[in-house]
Amino acid sequence: MNLTLKIWRQKNSKDKGKMETYPVKDISPDMSFLEMMDVLNNQLIESGQDPVAFDHDCREGICGMCSMFINGEAHGPGRGITTCQLHMRSFKDGDTIYIEPWRAAAFPVIKDLVVDRSSFDRVIQAGGYVSVNTSGNTQDANAIPVPKEDADKAFDAATCIGCGACVATCKNSSAMLFVSAKISQLALLPQGKVEAKQRALNMVKQMDEEGFGNCSNTGACEVECPKGISLENIARMNREYLKASTS
């Protein structure tokens, strides 16, 4: 099929950037979206133009690197998938496809579709861990039984891949789903409970400092999240933080 691509081009973080139009031909419906981008880039390279920069790595939906805002939605149409898992059969011959980078003050554009998500790392550094040193003598793994339900919920929260689709899709560029997933995961496990209060306070503080917006409970993040992280986590974070700040 033949398509028209409208892609955000921006040379570097200082450049103003604009949308550019590129036609692509003979796209197979079995291609992944990123393979279609590969085709475009090869075309651009061979004709002496600058290829479109975009983040990608594992191409199987787990590393969280790919990050395109396609036709108005984070990771494009389709639910429960990352950009790399989107296939061209989701589009029709003759379609125009808009491709933009994640938009948020906390995710400045580096080039074209590549953004800087190190704000996520700094939020984790503020407390997204259990303060336990490596040693051969930690308690036996089965010393503390953990109710299966808690373990499963902690796992569900922990499946966050840190791609930033929640921020990209939220009208407020809020990172609450991301932050709450980590706070929830650790608050649900006995190993993480010890530091739960300080963790909630510190991570929220860092989140605010990074310039993410607030939560309006629109629920868009949950819908667009490739891993289906639940809003339940945001509620749990709200509880944890309330507990921490009132005691």
Partner: peptide
């Protein structure tokens, strides 16, 4: 205050945004 903060969290808008695909009008 929230609105001001939230607007400043996204200084550059999308050209194409399909918010209706994932959230209710009133909530936005």
């Amino acid at each position: 205050l929230l609105t001001i903060k939230n607007k400043s969290a996204r200084p550059v808008k999308y050209h194409n945004e399909k918010a209706s695909a994932n959230s209710a009008w009133a909530s936005r």
